[in-house]
């Protein structure tokens, strides 16, 4: 089996594969990330049957945490399979922080957290902020420290979907991109290496100073969100709130008590960026 290791934020992974190519691609895209000697989680890309290594190669994602009914993916989508495997380990296995399914970015030593459903634009917005005066912290998981309430970066590969791919290629012409993966269950996907300062500073946490619920494709609007609504939405956005028990309750109530919350609706990313900066200037 071919293998590599990588560290994203506080989490270390060992990744194995029956094929050489996916490991080579991971090493290429994650070249700037540390290679730890110990790992928190293992992810493996295995052939569904021995002969499926060669004939119509098909990748089954295995690891410490697995979804029993996960469908195998064709070898061309192996990188996506690996990314899904990494996410799954974090979502199901990580206990050292409260995990919010959210993107985050840092400015002036303070963190902005953005959460919303798939297609809300949270991933694209965090990436764009990362090229517009902010430090990108992560596009998938915001990790909240149980002890001090700070947001800990998790700057994995940025997952661009559908029209966000072309939009980002235009805005960031020198971006390092993975292969275009077409016709996945979420449409076309292309991964982008985060800005280098995000990777270099991935140990630097920041106190959350604002929580946003962005929503793409609606008339421009900003509204304040009540703490109770925000709390309820964050329990749904957290993959480990229930598992963490009272520790999770303490961390989330502290986060809600200390963080102002807004919902923003927007038609295009330029509007969203200026809305974010406008709100940020008032905190």
């Amino acid at each position: 089996m071919f293998e590599t290791t990588l560290k994203v934020g506080p989490a270390s992974f060992r990744i194995g594969s029956d094929w050489k190519e996916p490991i080579a691609l991971i090493d290429e895209l994650y070249a700037a990330y540390p290679k730890p000697s110990l790992s928190d989680f293992t992810v493996r890309m295995e052939a569904t049957k021995p002969w499926r290594r060669y004939i119509r190669p098909s990748v089954q994602i295995k690891g410490d945490y697995m979804l029993p009914d996960a469908l195998p993916l064709p070898l061309e989508q192996a990188f996506l399979a690996a990314e899904m495997g990494l996410n799954l380990q974090m979502a199901l296995g990580w206990r050292r922080h409260l995990i919010l399914h959210a993107s985050s970015a840092e400015k002036d030593g303070k963190a902005l957290i953005m959460t919303g459903e798939s297609g809300s634009g949270k991933s694209t917005l965090s990436a764009l902020l990362g090229y517009n005066g902010w430090r990108f912290m992560g596009d998938e998981f915001a990790l909240i420290d149980h002890d001090n309430g700070e947001a800990v970066p998790y700057p994995r590969m940025i997952s661009l979907k559908n029209q966000a791919i072309a939009a980002m290629e235009k805005q960031v012409p020198n971006a390092v991109l993975g292969p275009l993966i077409e016709a996945t269950p979420k449409g076309d996907i292309r991964h982008m290496v985060p800005p280098i300062d995000a990777i270099r500073n991935m140990e630097k946490s920041a106190r959350p100073a604002m929580l946003l619920f962005p929503r793409f494709g609606h008339d421009t609007e900003v509204r304040e969100v009540l703490p109770s609504e925000a709390f309820m939405r964050l329990t749904q956005a957290s993959t480990n709130y229930v598992t963490m028990g009272e520790v999770g309750f303490n961390t989330l109530t502290r986060f809600i008590d200390e963080t102002p919350v807004y919902a923003i609706d927007y038609q295009n990313s330029e509007d969203a960026i200026s809305m974010v900066n406008e709100l940020w200037s008032k905190i």
Partner: peptide
């Protein structure tokens, strides 16, 4: 049983079940 007021809603955390009620 722990109560944590937010706004017009209050969180009630039940340690025995681990369930948060709003």
């Amino acid at each position: 049983v722990r109560l944590h007021p937010l706004d017009y809603m209050t969180l009630l955390y039940d340690r025995l079940s681990g369930i948060t009620h709003i």
